[in-house]
């Protein structure tokens, strides 16, 4: 049933067709993820590098994660009015914590001896950040981005509830019309999109994380366990877990 719905050519064209909905979904996801990254990475780098405001960042991230997704979307929808902007703001807000936590944890996780050596050899603060801390933070940072993207893909589907486009429409409209094949197809498409994006990000991670770090991660085995062990927050551990399960 679902398959025949999916492969029905009628569902592959028009403003409510799969390609249009898929692109809408992708666009929301990318915009929200990029906006979140643009906000969270610099903030995470700053906090991690200077060590100032770490408690605030971690606490804030946790608090933000505790926000009910649907509630936030609805709230912003009511406050900012209908339209894409409120939905995109909500999605961005949801995507910030994992990226922030990943970036912060990545910088913090850089070996203290390595940072000390960098200073002692005469690197300036910026040089240390760009040449040492950022490369070392990449695995956890990108783990945070992957986390955020998955979350946004999932939440975008729910956001159809406030009138947003995207694949969530199939779910919601299917539900209303008791069109179960349509619903299931929508769910399958959301899952497929999430998997494809995660795969692409995994490849990106492979490409940009320096080889020495990948070797080190393999050597030391379960990286995430170390993060938890050192009393990092659950947020950091989560971000790390993404990397660890790669």
């Amino acid at each position: 049933m679902t398959l025949s719905w999916l492969f029905d050519p009628a569902h592959w064209s028009g403003t409510d067709g799969i390609p249009v909905r898929l692109l809408q979904h992708l666009r929301y996801t990318l915009v929200a993820a990029l906006a979140a990254t643009a906000v969270a990475v610099p903030l995470g780098l700053f906090v991690g590098h200077t060590g100032r405001g770490g408690v605030l960042v971690v606490g804030g991230s946790n608090a933000m994660r505790a926000l009910p997704t649907l509630g936030l979307v609805t709230f912003l929808f009511l406050v900012l009015g209908s339209g894409e902007v409120s939905a995109l703001v909500a999605l961005t807000v949801l995507a910030v914590p994992p990226v922030l936590a990943g970036t912060y944890a990545g910088i913090q996780d850089t070996d203290a001896g390595v940072v000390d050596a960098a200073r002692g050899m005469g690197m300036t603060g910026w040089q240390r950040l760009w040449r040492v801390e950022l490369p070392n933070a990449l695995p956890l940072l990108l783990g945070g981005v992957r986390n955020a993207v998955l979350q946004v893909v999932a939440t975008t589907a729910v956001a159809a509830y406030v009138g947003l486009g995207g694949l969530g429409r199939f779910l919601l409209d299917g539900l209303r019309a008791f069109d179960y094949p349509k619903m299931v197809a929508g769910a399958v498409l959301v899952a497929a999109l999430a998997m494809v994006l995660d795969l692409l990000l995994a490849l990106l991670q492979r490409a940009v994380v320096p080889r020495g770090l990948r070797l080190a991660a393999r050597g030391r085995g379960r990286g995430p366990a170390r993060v938890v062990e050192r009393g990092r927050t659950e947020v950091a551990a989560d971000a790390a877990m993404r990397e660890g399960t790669e």
Binding site: D111, V114, A117, G120, V132, N136, G212, L213, A216
Partner: peptide, 10 residues
């Protein structure tokens, strides 16, 4: 320094 502090990514 003690643990050498080599840059693992280089």
């Amino acid at each position: 320094i003690q643990q050498a502090g080599l840059f693992p990514h280089r």
